[in-house]
Nucleic acid binder design. Structure first.
Lengths: 154, 154
DNA sequence: CTGTGTGCAAACTCTTTGCATAAGT
DNA sequence: ACTTATGCAAAGAGTTTGCACACAG
């Protein structure tokens, strides 16, 4: 009995988006469609959204002939985030996670296996948190840290 | 007109707790009260709770005669967290933040100035998020990222 | 005494940066 | 052409680890 709604986002590079699609997204933000940016965009902007680190994208970028260097992946992801194409997610540990879904939603984080995925919207309430005076809310991150239950012990 | 409830936790090393108090907390968790652990405990377990990184504690530990080394601070904080004396907080960037308040509560994080502080409980709803099947919830982190509002512009 | 923790230094991981070359408009 | 981005390599921040000595029980 598979659970249908546990992982609503398609994680992993199941399919690659066309260069044209990636270019269109960059154009919409006024970002120059250079080769590495288009390639990275092809990997990122898949149906349903993705969660990833720079290293993961670097691995996946191996499918491209001249493959972008890791430093370029970092720079590109940072730039995409600044332009609202990505969202940086606050997680534990010392790695930067990104998410192509920029709208408000929450995350599960699997402690041991380093996996990040969306919490289905119907499981979480609307959070409306007011900032202290003189401040504005840049973003809200909700991370639910998970651990597998022990399987034995009938 | 100062806002009374913005920063409910006392952050910063206003006062140091007695060695005896620190020892008692360690004893309650069955942790050997070695010199560095007691010293670090004296810095951490102040009234109202604290938020900090390893580096911050290292700086404050300069008040002790033989001051614990940074590596020991890291090891100790990690051990304290494993024993439930501290809680690790999920924030952006690549530093590990700790919090002496281990119960459920949420955080503001000031983007530019690297400050982490509690959101007053009355500002946030109770979050009751159910885990996917086969998983258990280890912890829930809510981080509201803040930015100062521009001050000019009458 | 015996085992565990600490100090020190080095290693490691992740991320950023500087600079010459290459590519985009 | 002119500007901006990329590749490469090196540096930088934060954290962890290995090992000999020191300390707690």
């Amino acid at each position: 009995m598979a659970q249908p709604t546990i992982r609503p986002t398609g994680d992993g590079a199941q399919g690659i988006v066309s260069p044209a699609t990636a270019r269109a997204l960059l154009a919409a933000k006024g970002i120059r469609p250079t080769r590495p940016r288009v390639q990275i965009g092809q990997l990122l902007f898949q149906e349903g959204g993705r969660h990833f680190t720079a290293e993961q994208i670097y691995e996946e970028a191996a499918i491209f002939r001249p493959r972008p260097v890791l430093a370029t992946i970092y720079n590109t992801l940072r730039e995409f985030a600044q332009n609202g194409l990505l969202r940086e997610v606050a997680v534990y540990g010392n790695r930067i996670w990104f998410d192509t879904t920029v709208g408000p939603h929450f995350h599960y984080f699997m402690d041991g296996s380093d996996e990040l995925f969306d919490i289905p919207d119907n499981l979480v309430p609307q959070l409306q948190i007011q900032p202290p005076p003189g401040m504005r809310v840049v973003g809200v991150d909700v991370v639910v840290r998970l651990e597998p239950l022990p399987v034995d012990q009938g």
